[in-house]
């Protein structure tokens, strides 16, 4: 187990290092070079002076070492937009995104598992076909358009749900007010995640149902529900844990779009605004932090997987 943990840990550090190198090179490839990272001054003289002050005339590997050292100390630079430290801004935005993403992931898992089990146990039935068809729609529907359509129906026509924000400005900050604001964003985000989870739950369940121990359980004369829920489900759930972890990049990527549609003040909205405004320190800080969150989560999922299923530890 120790060796397994060590191997995963090294892999995680490697991925983070790769991301750091990638973002570093990306900035150096930017028209105008990394000088534009820290100054908005644009005349040649100013830039030359700035380059010398920043040590940009030094060899690339020296610069990279310095940059890495700053990252490790948590110094991501300051935003061009308001001059605040990047890390402080991200500290405010990240939890807001995680709330949205966490809720969507939870709803997706809660809905996908029964759907997948149903599809697997009723293979070829109408319900299975309907589930498959809906999954196709789910992967193909542009989430931003789905969000707009929901807004047209529930905000414009029916006036049931608020069209944007986390809570009503000026109104009392109640839990129900927050929940009402979360319904549409969570629904839109979950729609993008559901199909893959359903598909995975279905194929995982189908595979387990064809195993010998399931046949034995059936042969013993056990009720179908007992075979499905007691013998098969537990084993079918193990791979679903992994795929839930693997979905995280999609959750966060999806949050970018969802936050934009519904004016949800999270990391995604910030990323888009920073990309449009060419706020380099912010964009790169977000990329590194998001990569860190994803890598850390994958590490936890990997370890959980190894703990749940001893077979994995010895590959």
């Amino acid at each position: 187990m120790l060796q397994f943990v060590a191997r995963r840990l090294i892999h995680a550090v490697g991925v983070l290092l790769a991301v750091a190198i990638f973002t570093f090179l990306l900035v150096h490839a930017a028209p105008g070079g990394p000088a534009i990272m820290t100054t908005m001054e644009t005349t040649p003289d100013q830039i030359a002076a700035h380059r010398a002050r920043l040590g940009l005339d030094q060899p690339l590997h020296v610069q990279f070492g310095k940059w890495m050292w700053n990252l490790l100390r948590g110094d991501f630079g300051r935003s061009f937009n308001d001059g605040r430290p990047v890390l402080a801004v991200l500290g405010e935005r990240l939890p807001v995104t995680l709330l949205l993403g966490g809720a969507a992931l939870l709803i997706s898992v809660v809905l996908a598992l029964p759907a997948g089990i149903y599809s697997a146990t009723h293979r070829g039935a109408t319900g299975d076909h309907v589930t498959t068809f809906l999954s196709f729609i789910g992967v193909s529907i542009p989430s931003f358009w789905f969000g707009i359509v929901l807004t047209i129906v529930f905000s414009v026509q029916l006036r049931w749900l608020p069209s944007s924000g986390m809570f009503t400005v000026g109104a009392a900050d109640t839990l129900s007010n927050r929940i009402v604001h979360m319904i549409m964003p969570v629904l839109v985000l979950a729609t993008g995640l559901l199909p893959q989870l359903v598909r995975y739950a279905r194929s995982s369940m189908l595979e387990v149902l064809s195993r010998d121990y399931v046949r034995t359980a059936r042969a013993k004369g056990l009720a179908t529900s007992r075979v499905v829920y007691h013998h098969a489900l537990r084993n079918a759930l193990i791979p679903v844990v992994t795929v839930t972890g693997l979905l995280l990049p999609r959750v966060i990527g999806g949050a970018v779009i969802t936050e934009q549609i519904f004016g949800w003040p999270g990391m995604g909205q910030l990323a888009v605004a920073s990309a449009i405004g060419r706020d380099f320190p912010m964009v790169l800080g977000i990329t590194v932090v998001i990569a860190g969150v994803v890598v850390a989560t994958n590490l936890i999922v990997d370890l959980a997987y190894g703990w749940l299923d001893p077979r994995i530890r010895h590959d």
Binding site: V15, L26, V27, A29, I252, V256, A275, A291, V294
Partner: peptide, 14 residues
């Protein structure tokens, strides 16, 4: 393992 949309945003920003 990376959220590609963020990478794309970084590329587009640059």
């Amino acid at each position: 393992a990376l959220p590609t949309l963020f990478l794309i945003l970084a590329i587009v920003a640059v």
